[in-house]
Nucleic acid binder design. Structure first.
Lengths: 344, 344
DNA sequence: ATCAAAAATGAAAAGGTTTACATTCCGCTC
DNA sequence: GAGCGGAATGTAAACCTTTTCATTTTTGAT
């Protein structure tokens, strides 16, 4: 007994008014007479009418939907950013489509096509890579041109582009984390990095190096180990460090997962955290507080990053003037129990 | 210099064919002559044409999009399920819209309106609560009726409904986890539950009780503590247990987060895991392996759950006959290092 | 060369809204 | 009571596809 859903025509007929009046009664109730409004609402109620959003979008050429490209939903780091985006979007009557790209360019293109195909009004990039839109002519320099939809970049910055960006002060965070270790008396401080081509990796590494420079500690290349942001790579890095000979007295990891892996490996090697080696992470994910010992880490205001990004995008979409194209937020060091002075 | 995007008319004009031919060339390239196809593709390329999906959807009355309602994206447990859903959807040319409801019925309704308003073809529920669709007439019994869109429930089951469901054998999993503790020699086994109105909580509690019954161990109500699936509630439960007097020798937690919290609290109380008290979790989230000690837990085939659910939904949407409306998957116990025999 | 069948194409309708523009209605003022 | 202005309403176009149905072209057999 599945009947076709009611259309605006049905409502108009039932209410004894024109479809224009129905549309107006629903969109801007105040510009319609009381009696008409009442009749329309009644008919809507009786028929269980819901406007066909596809038709509306087609006519309005706006979807109230934004795509968010996230490299990996499974990464707890992104969830809170997404939540922030969500709340800002919801507050301004927008919906978000989360595209989990798994760093697969094909996936990215697929989702980007959403905005190209008018299924979404704008794009928020959490991955720092600009998807190449199909059928899009771009010659390096002029990105946000003709066919390009409104785009906002969050979390990462895309060095060559002029896109609106909100990001965390990664270099500053890394610098103060490393400086903290130095203040505690450490000199042999290892750094486990993310993937080398990642801009976050580069910024955090730069911060680490800057702090060492500030303290006139010579850089020891052997203490910089490449990871990939995974727990396992944190483990592996520590094992590698162990195999190389002397352990450092402290390790600064480019994210919390690697720090957690590192702690596990340090314990497995029979040493204690923080008595034998201090560990510091980056991001302050949910589990940072739950590991043993609770992880000292650089806190990122993730919800705020998400909100700021979404509001930026909405401002662009609404044609509001945007004050500053790039906003840099910063957080602070969350001191817990994974850092201590080195042993005498 | 932002010009309007090219439409199918532009392509048709440029290619010197009718819009019908353009449409066909793009949809079903093989029913069009080679020459026409070539001309069309060329024109598309030159104009950078992308079909307006809103218009297409309106005409086809299908969006190739499904909404997934998840109670909390931040919960790492759901990420893998989402990934499974995503991969199955992607394989069959569908996209998913992830609706983070935060257990807020208003949010749920908002997202459900998507399918009501024809912005999505179907709905996957990860939260086990049926959103009330606006303007929807339902009288308890007959849920999936007239206006109801295709819905599939994953992870949880909704007892009163006849909706297609794929879920994990929660009772069985809890039972075998508890039985394992009993086999190890434990008799005083505490259980930290989830929120009492949650169906998962109920099923897992039932499994716990069944295992005790199997072993003829009398149920001790004092050993059943209510949690809410959060790390903190796991901590609190252990503190409560401690305050109550005797510690159990083992704790079965209704999820991994609470188990992680429990381990932290047990350590904080000066006892060791597993030597003094064994802990077992549920879900096998990513971090289960990274905590100290690595957590023994009930593994759920999350990706598979997601895939199965999505394929079920797609079968319904395609009108394929579906063999069995409800599928129960099961996993196994992941034995790590948080369980040991009780001390003599 | 003729014809039938098959293949390719085009014209036009349909899909459900919003909205520009035209019209009607109502209450005023003079 | 004519004229006017503003509010309320209706008509019809526009949004851009896909797809039905009719028409034309091609193919292949005779």
């Amino acid at each position: 007994m599945t009947s076709k859903p009611a259309t605006i025509d049905d409502v108009a007929r039932r209410a004894g008014v024109s479809i224009a009046t129905v549309s107006r009664a629903l969109q801007k109730p105040n510009i319609v007479s009381d009696s008409a409004r009442e009749k329309v609402f009644e008919a809507v109620e009786e028929l269980g009418y819901t406007a066909n959003v596809m038709a509306r979008n087609l006519r309005r050429n706006r979807t109230n939907m934004a795509v968010v490209l996230v490299p990996n939903i499974g990464n707890p780091f992104f969830s809170e950013i997404l939540a922030g985006i969500e709340s800002a979007a919801s507050a301004r009557n927008y919906n978000i489509l989360i595209g989990d790209t798994e760093n697969d360019p094909a996936r990215e293109r697929e989702y980007a096509a959403f905005v190209r195909g008018h299924q979404a009004d704008g794009l928020i990039l959490l991955n720092g890579r600009l998807p190449s839109l199909p059928g899009d002519r771009r010659d390096g320099a002029n990105l946000q041109t003709s066919a390009m939809p409104p785009i906002v970049v969050a979390c990462e910055r895309i060095p060559e582009s002029a896109l609106p960006t909100v990001c965390f002060d990664n270099t500053g965070g890394a610098r103060s984390a490393t400086a903290y270790l130095i203040r505690m008396g450490h000199r042999r401080i290892a750094h486990i990095t993310g993937p080398p081509d990642n801009i976050l990796t580069q910024d955090r590494l730069a911060g680490y190096q800057a702090a060492l420079g500030d303290a006139k500690i010579p850089l020891d290349e052997n203490l910089i180990i490449e990871g990939d942001f995974s727990i396992e790579s944190g483990r592996a890095a520590i094992r590698l460090l162990g195999a190389l000979g002397e352990f450092p007295t402290a390790v600064f990891c480019a994210n919390d997962e690697m720090a957690i892996g590192a702690i596990a490996a340090i314990k497995a090697a029979g040493k204690r955290v923080p008595e034998d080696v201090s560990v510091i992470g980056f991001d302050d994910i949910q589990f940072a507080d739950a590991v043993d010992p609770p992880l000292t880490t650089v806190h990122q205001p993730r919800a705020e990053i998400g909100q700021t990004a979404m509001n930026l995008l909405l401002d662009v979409l609404d044609g509001n003037p945007i004050a500053q194209k790039t906003r840099v937020l910063d957080g602070g060091l969350r001191k817990r129990d994974s850092v201590a002075p080195p042993r005498a």
